[in-house]
């Protein structure tokens, strides 16, 4: 009987995680071989048909390419830049760090829906402050949300504004955890600031950086979904559609459950390598830390 006591503690969380995370993965796999409009009681076995139609169509490749562009932009703005800013915080005395930490983290606590609405206003081509500023500087303002080339940048910046602070704090936690003795020893040996950064701080924070990298790639695709859904609906002509939005559109816009599921499976396969790598690193860190 005593053997079951630990299970009682774990059961509620485990049950919910299995029911709402793992079972749906298998269910999505099954759905991806069906043709079904989510309403009719019967679904037709389709075999690999959904995959073939995705891989031979234009939308999937466009959305895949856009997802890659979003990811690269987010990695620069939400991994490289916050890392630099977090490093800057560690370079000023502790008592001056607090206001910076508090202010930079602040946008992280508001909804992406709020962020999207604010930027819809800021980007407004006639009255929006961004465009007025650009005009004052004598620059022509692009049509942020309706231009093929600018729309991904505009939507990425919204996501960046909201996520920057969170990643900044996580990276700062990693930087703060670098043992002081290592840095002091290097200083005694006459190492320059840059050498200390590159040979000690960077490798010592690699686990944190990897964590933020995977989060930015996997969750980034989810986060940009909100501004896409709210502001552009994937347009103009699929120019801002990413894979998450495409799945949503197939499923909830066109009621093609099978095609949506097939798209989800293909997306997962791409992310799987990263996810497993990250879980292994996290596990190692968890078990060998102490």
């Amino acid at each position: 009987m005593r053997r079951f006591i630990p299970l009682v503690f774990i059961a509620p969380a485990l049950f919910l995680i299995v029911l709402f995370t793992f079972w749906p993965v298998l269910s999505t796999l099954h759905l991806s071989f069906l043709q079904w409009n989510m309403i009719s009681p019967r679904a037709r076995w389709e075999g690999p048909g959904n995959y073939l139609s995705l891989l031979t169509g234009r939308e999937f490749w466009l959305a895949g390419y856009n997802t890659l562009v979003y990811t690269v932009i987010l990695l620069v703005f939400n991994l490289v830049l916050p890392y630099l800013v977090a490093y800057a915080v560690t370079r000023v005395p502790p008592r001056r760090q607090t206001p910076y930490k508090a202010l930079i983290f602040a946008p992280g606590v508001i909804s992406l829906a709020v962020a999207s609405v604010i930027f819809l206003w800021l980007y407004n081509p006639v009255l929006g402050p961004v465009d007025i500023l650009l005009r004052h500087l004598g620059l022509g303002a692009p049509a942020w949300l309706t231009g093929y080339r600018t729309v991904i940048w505009a939507l990425s910046l919204i996501t960046t504004w909201k996520l920057f602070g969170y990643n900044f704090i996580v990276l700062l936690a990693g930087l703060v955890a670098v043992p002081r003795e290592l840095i002091q020893a290097a200083q005694l040996e006459g190492a320059s600031g840059w050498q200390i950064f590159w040979h000690i701080i960077r490798p010592q924070t690699s686990a944190t950086s990897l964590y933020v990298l995977v989060m930015t790639v996997v969750w980034g695709a989810q986060y940009v979904f909100v501004p896409i859904q709210m502001l552009t609906n994937g347009g103009p002509d699929y120019a801002s559609t990413n894979l998450v939005f495409l799945i949503y559109q197939y499923g909830f816009g066109f009621f093609q459950a099978g095609k949506a599921a097939a798209c989800a499976v293909l997306t997962l396969l791409v992310f799987l390598v990263l996810i497993l790598l990250q879980a292994r690193v996290l596990e190692k860190k968890v078990y060998y830390e102490d």
Binding site: P24, A221, I247
Partner: peptide
């Protein structure tokens, strides 16, 4: 470990079955 992996399962893979359920 299984629970840890669930952190990284993207929502897009689970949303259809969860909605249907």
């Amino acid at each position: 470990y299984l629970c840890l992996v669930s952190i990284f399962v993207p929502v897009q893979v689970t949303m259809l079955p969860n909605y249907l359920l």
